[in-house]
Design a protein around this nucleic acid. Structure first.
Lengths: 218, 218
DNA sequence: GCACGCCCTAAGCGCCCGCTCACCTTCGGC
DNA sequence: GCCGAAGGTGAGCGGGCGCTTAGGGCGTGC
C-alpha cells in the first residue's frame, strides 16, 4: 500500500480511499475550508489555492462544489456509522458497549473535528437527493445506539423513561462536541471521550458508572 | 404599550424592544432567513423581500447585513442569559434550580428554534469585535450553570467528577436542541424540556431525579 | 397650502462568484 | 521519436452579490 493506509495509532489514514492524489488533496483542502468558514462562505478559488492548484483544476475531478461536499459527507458518515457499529456489535455488557460507542464516537468528533464539523453541520447545503442519502445513514447511526440502549434496558442494566428521546440526546451530546472542541483547549480527545462515556452511563441510569471507567490519560 | 409586549402565555413578545416597526420586520425576516439557509447563503434581497420591502430599504435601518446578525445575536444571547440567571437565582434546592434552568433553556431553544439556531450557530460569521462581545455573554451563561452545579456539589446533592466538563456538556446538550428540534416532530418544547431536565439531573448524580419531576403538559 | 423631513423605491455600480473553454505540458507504449 | 490520453493552466463569461444614490410620496407644523 503506497498511500500510507495505517498511521502510528493503528487508525486508517483518513481519505485514503480517495484517488487519484490530486482529487484527495482537493478534498482535504475542501474539508479544511468548509470547517473553518462554512460551505457557503468557501469559494472554489480558496479550495483550489489550498491544494496548490488553479481554480479550474477543481473541475477536472469534481463536477461541482456541491459534489465535493457530498463526497465528504458520505465518507464521513460511513466512518461514523462504522465506529458505532463496531462498538455495538462488540462483546461485553450493554454498559461496556455503550461506553465504548460513546467514547470512540466522541474521540472521532474531537480528534477529527474539521471533518466532523462539515459532516454534522453542513448537511443542509446539500441538494434534496444527496441530503436524503445522508439522512438515511444518520438514521442507521441512531438505530445502532438505540439498539445498545434497548439491550441494556432488557438486561436490567439501564433505567430509561424515554428510549427514543434518550437515544437522541446521547447522539446530540456527542455530535455537538464537533462544535465546541478546540485543539487549543485543555482537554484531549481521549479525556473528552472518557468524560462523556461516564456522563452517558449516568443518563441511562447505570448505578456506579465510575466503578470501572475508561481510563483518563493523565 | 401599543406593540403587544405580552402574549397569552405571559411571555414577553420577542423583538418587542426593536423599533421602529419597519426595523423589527426586517429583523424578524432576517432571523427566519438565517435560520433556514444560514447567514452566508442568505441575500439582503431575500431579507427585504420577506419583510415586504425593496432591497434598499434594509440599509435605512441597518448599516450592513452583518449588523443585522450582530443585533440578533446580542438580543438572543441576552434572552438566553436572562433565562439561566432567573433560574439560577430562584429559590429551592440546587436540584430544583438546575432542573428549572435546563427545562426553561431547552424550552426556549425548541420553541424559538429559528432564533436559537441563528444565535448558536452563526457566531463565526461575525467580525472579531462583535464576536468577542457575544463570546463574553456566552461565558456568563456558562458561569450561571456552573454556579448551580457548584452549589449542588457543596450541598452534597450532586456527585460530579469534572465540574467544568460537566457544565460544558450540560450546556452543549441544551444548545444542540436548536439543531435537531422540529415543530413537525413528535415532541413539544415542554416535553423536551422535561426530558432533558431529568437527563441532566442524572448526569450530575442525583439519585432519584424522577421523584418530583417537572410535569409534562399532556 | 406648502415646505420639510422621514421612509421608501428604481436603478445600477463594482466586485467576485461558480464554472467553462481553448490550449499547454508530461509521459508511457510502441 | 512520435502520439494520444490524462491532468493541468490563464483568461474570462454570465450572473448575482452587498451596497449606494438620486429622487419620489406623504403625513405634519404652522
Amino acid at each position: 500500500m503506497s498511500t500510507a493506509e495505517e498511521t502510528a495509532g493503528g487508525e486508517i489514514e483518513p481519505w485514503g480511499e480517495v484517488t487519484p492524489d490530486a482529487a484527495r488533496r482537493l478534498l482535504v483542502a475542501a474539508v479544511e475550508a468548509f470547517a473553518e468558514r462554512g460551505y457557503h462562505a468557501t469559494t472554489t478559488r480558496d479550495i483550489a489555492g489550498r491544494a496548490g492548484m488553479s481554480p479550474a483544476a477543481l473541475y477536472i475531478h469534481y463536477k461541482t462544489k456541491e459534489e465535493l461536499l457530498h463526497r465528504i459527507s458520505r465518507i464521513g458518515h460511513e466512518k461514523a456509522l462504522d465506529i458505532l457499529r463496531t462498538a455495538a456489535r462488540g462483546e461485553g455488557s450493554a454498559s461496556e458497549r455503550l461506553a465504548d460507542a460513546v467514547g470512540s464516537f466522541v474521540r472521532w468528533h474531537a480528534g477529527r473535528r474539521t471533518t466532523a464539523r462539515v459532516v454534522q453541520y453542513e448537511l443542509d447545503a446539500l441538494g434534496p437527493e444527496a441530503r436524503a442519502e445522508i439522512v438515511a445513514l444518520r438514521r442507521r447511526c441512531d438505530a445502532e445506539v438505540r439498539g445498545i440502549i434497548e439491550d441494556g434496558v432488557a438486561a436490567g442494566e439501564f433505567e430509561v423513561l424515554d428510549l427514543k428521546g434518550t437515544t437522541l440526546a446521547v447522539l446530540s451530546l456527542c455530535i455537538d462536541v464537533a462544535r465546541w472542541f478546540s485543539v487549543h483547549g485543555p482537554r484531549t480527545p481521549d479525556e473528552v471521550g472518557a468524560l462523556y462515556a461516564d456522563l452517558v452511563l449516568r443518563m441511562v441510569g447505570v448505578k456506579r458508572p465510575g466503578a470501572a471507567p475508561m481510563q483518563s490519560q493523565k
